[in-house]
Design a protein around this nucleic acid. Structure first.
Lengths: 350, 350
DNA sequence: TTGGGCCATGTTACCGCTGACTTGGCTTTC
DNA sequence: GAAAGCCAAGTCAGCGGTAACATGGCCCAA
């Protein structure tokens, strides 16, 4: 079936095996141009027989087309990003484009490096998480001359296109909902900010809206690393012991929120009456907890989908007006079982 | 800073800007060969000034070296695989090699397609999950003439190298531990098998060891899709209602096990005395549940690490005896809080 | 002084494939 | 029956780098 000398096969091998020119083989393998049925069959058979796999490196160089889309995200262990990836893959599934992931671990220097690596493969487009980048990264993105979509966050000025939600607004929306339900003594639990701009913006929006309603955060705590569920549990315990009068805890993500929820349930705290809880992201993973945590859907599926579509349309239609779009999606609050159904004070109309 | 005509930059642009030959620029950019400090600085400055990003496509074609390692896994939403990815990335971090992921969604035809795509980029090695592949995939892997490591599973004959655990043995070990602790009426809850060979093998090993000890599975149920936590909860409820005399539930993964655990706790079932529970994988994510689910560590970190090291050594040392290795790691049982500390019947010595 | 050696740089020939153009044979048309 | 048209296949010149070899200037030993 195969012979020993492991020299990789080339078009020439197939062309010799099938008695036609390399060009014809190339045409057959790409379904391009007119080739007679007889020739086509002959070539396909020879290719299969030999086990020929085309060399995209050479193909890409010759045709100046590399059908890859670079997708740059902070982490794979956050669940949120694999979900976006899936949506992107879905859209690109039946197109010539193919996503390739790069992971930055939330580090600016890694982002620069990963971006450089990716761009050196001359992809057809870039989808990159976040709207904050180093100057060097921005320069690279601008200079690449390919469509760029910044995703997840719209609070800022995109380089080209952006699809996401306003995290500042998300924080505000949640604060307003919490106040509207009559909660007043509010604690915030989140990640250490410098790492995560979106969490920071939610926090800012949150405090801002509280302030506007004449309230402020009564207690706050930030964590780093470790198992989020366990951290949520620990932090909640610490905070409730320190500030027993709190009546609401807002978590910067669902996992720590779930940890907090478990803690409260175990300790006989009446959720949502004594204490209300809310997280952020709306992760599917947590469906099945004893109570459903209030949260806010971050539109990950739609973000991935739209981002991929933008790249796609730009690639298919080279001359589309180079004007970038900014698409701000609207997250929805899912009240779950950890927020009172409505205000006990009717401070705001529902 | 940049000019309008968006023709991508080439070595020639840099060479003209710095007044040396293309070759010298190439040498500088790759730190190869002797270049005087003065020239080096001149070139680097010009490159930065222009914002030049080398074209790896051309470089790879010319040098016949593509420093990519294809990593082919079934899913990104399983947590298990991102963890393996991280380990691989860690090892390759400071080497010229770079991992590239492909996702098969547990489908054989997708695997074939993804593999073909990846191989057409002529990677330096392949790391692929599982040891079961279609004939076509096997042929491709064999024909590629590059190191291949099949990971996660060692129950079978590897194409080249394999690193993983024996899932049959893992199932057996868990069955033995369960019996040893004195449990007798055992239920199994898992995924529909055809999708997942490793889950199937654990099931087989499990039943086999039970049989050897003179027992058999008293009830079983299989699910597909949906949120694992919720599914675990539902299935547990259904099973315990149907077979109230069960005293142990073995879950094919930790997520459904956690769902079951939550169900039991809420319904006042005494875990681990009335009913013992165990899952599989040892996922970090779940640390923080009310009780720690008994599970078995699947050695994901070490698997990723070893696989990457094998590829690395083979790439660095082209002529290493082409003999593939098969590394079987030994998973360890973590008893957690959902298995009795020891047998009440002393059927086996601990 | 002169030949040998060495270092920094340049020259040349590809890598495997594709775009654009060319060729040759056969059909069509009047 | 000859010009025109068309289809299938072939030729050739790169794509943007890099390996391997060639070159020229300088230093040093004999």
């Amino acid at each position: 079936m195969t012979d020993l000398p492991k020299r990789p096969l080339t078009l020439r091998d197939v062309s010799e095996a099938s008695g036609v020119s390399e060009m014809t083989v190339s045409r057959v393998l790409r379904n391009r141009g007119d080739v007679s049925a007889a020739t086509r069959d002959k070539v396909l058979e020879a290719a299969k027989e030999l086990g020929y796999v085309p060399n995209k490196i050479a193909g890409a160089l010759a045709s100046q087309r590399v059908n890859l889309v670079a997708v740059i995200i902070p982490s794979l262990s956050n669940m949120v990003f694999p979900e976006v990836m899936s949506a992107i893959s879905d859209v690109l599934e039946d197109t010539p484009l193919q996503p390739v992931v790069g992971v930055t671990n939330y580090k600016t220097d890694r982002e620069e490096k990963v971006l450089y690596e990716m761009l050196s493969w001359r992809p057809s487009g870039v989808i990159i998480a976040g709207i904050e980048h180093s100057d060097a990264s921005k320069a690279m993105l601008r200079g690449a001359g390919i469509p760029v979509v910044e995703i997840m966050d719209t609070d800022g000025t995109p380089i080209d296109n952006a699809v996401g939600i306003s995290h500042r607004r998300a924080g505000r929306m949640m604060a307003e909902a919490i106040i509207r339900k009559g909660y007043r003594k509010i604690g915030f639990l989140g990640t250490k900010m410098p790492l995560d701009h979106r969490a920071r913006k939610r926090f800012e929006g949150f405090t801002e809206a509280l302030a506007k309603a004449g309230h402020e955060i009564s207690d706050q705590e930030f964590y780093e690393g470790g198992s989020a569920l366990a951290k949520g549990r620990e932090m909640t315990e610490a905070m409730l012991k320190r500030s027993p009068d709190l009546d609401f805890l807002y978590y910067s993500n669902d996992m720590i929120g779930a940890g907090g929820l478990l803690y409260c349930l175990e300790n006989g705290i009446d959720v949502p009456n004594d204490v209300g809880l809310a997280g952020f992201n709306g992760v599917e993973l947590l469906k099945g907890l004893p109570k459903q945590l209030a949260t806010m859907d971050s539109c990950r599926d739609e973000i991935g989908r739209k981002a991929a579509e933008i790249i796609l349309s730009r690639v298919e239609d080279e001359d589309t007006a180079k004007g970038g779009q900014k698409i701000e999606l609207t997250p929805t609050i899912e009240r779950g079982d950890t927020m009172r159904p409505r205000s006990t004070e009717a401070a705001y109309p529902e």
